[in-house]
């Protein structure tokens, strides 16, 4: 069990300018699990996700201390490109590139140097199948991706991430813009992906976390209050603040 973490953070502290956004986060992500991260707004959930693939560094004032391990290696040993290839992210709103459905998914392989057309089509098809979108779009691959519905677009984003063959997938409140039916489809896709990937799901929606995740972490004001198996966390929280949050006393 000791070595079986995919991601491990040790004493992770994150700052935007002088603002201390995450405080001493120690957390592990196991293979094949969906780790839910819940907490009220501004509790540092998104910052945590984006620390894992160093997207936070797109902000000029960002700095962090502590260590993050991916498969036992400190992530600073990896280039940004390789790290982000290994850790894919799905953003809050479906964000597709203004190109065709096919090109959206093919973009990742293309930038990673896969030029063989057949190989690319194969990757695209496989990624779309895994994201449970293939049946709906297989006849309209050259169409602009913006014509897809919101839920389809979000699954397209998942497919786009899968096409670069990551090890971990991060979801940043990725269902917040979707209706219940689309959400259900996206959640289905996530369950199927457990066979291959570790997944981290940040959500404002505690119900979704309890539905989807295997383990769950509760963040509050930049601190990791509690982490444990989802069922335990929701039925028998150890910390009073967790209890307050999931019973809806704040947030």
């Amino acid at each position: 069990m000791v070595n079986e973490t995919v991601i491990k953070t040790v004493n992770l502290d994150c700052f935007f300018g002088t603002q201390h956004v995450l405080k001493n986060i120690n957390l592990e992500v196991l293979p094949h699990e969906i780790l839910g991260i819940i907490g009220p707004a501004n509790s540092g959930k998104t910052t945590f996700l984006r620390a894992l693939n160093r997207l936070n560094y797109l902000h000029r004032t960002y700095s962090q201390t502590g260590e993050i391990f991916l498969d036992g290696r400190e992530i600073h040993q990896l280039t940004d490109n390789l790290l982000r290839k290994k850790i894919g992210i799905i953003f809050a709103l479906p964000q597709v590139l203004p190109v065709s459905i096919f090109d959206n998914v093919a973009y990742g392989p293309k930038v990673h140097g896969i030029t063989n057309r057949q190989a690319v089509s194969q990757l695209v098809e496989e990624a779309l199948k895994r994201a449970y979108l293939w049946e709906e779009v297989k006849d309209r691959l050259p169409e602009p991706a913006v014509r897809l519905s919101g839920g389809q677009q979000q699954r397209l984003c998942i497919a786009r991430t899968l096409a670069v063959e990551p090890e971990v997938i991060l979801y940043d409140e990725h269902c917040s813009g979707l209706d219940p039916i689309s959400t259900a489809k996206v959640e289905d896709a996530m369950q199927q992906l457990k066979a291959h990937y570790a997944q981290i799901l940040v959500t404002n929606n505690t119900k979704q976390a309890s539905r989807v995740s295997d383990r769950c972490a509760f963040f509050l004001m930049g601190e990791l209050v509690e982490i444990g198996p989802t069922h335990d966390l929701f039925t028998n929280p150890r910390d009073k603040r967790t209890d307050d949050y999931i019973t809806g006393r704040f947030g």
């Binding site: 070595n3 079986e4 973490t5 995919v6 293979p31 094949h32 498969d71 036992g72 290994k86 063959e165 990551p166 090890e167 291959h196 990937y197 570790a198």
Partner: peptide
């Protein structure tokens, strides 16, 4: 841990 990649990817 190294094997995670080969198993999952």
């Amino acid at each position: 841990h190294e094997s995670v990649a080969s198993h999952t990817v």
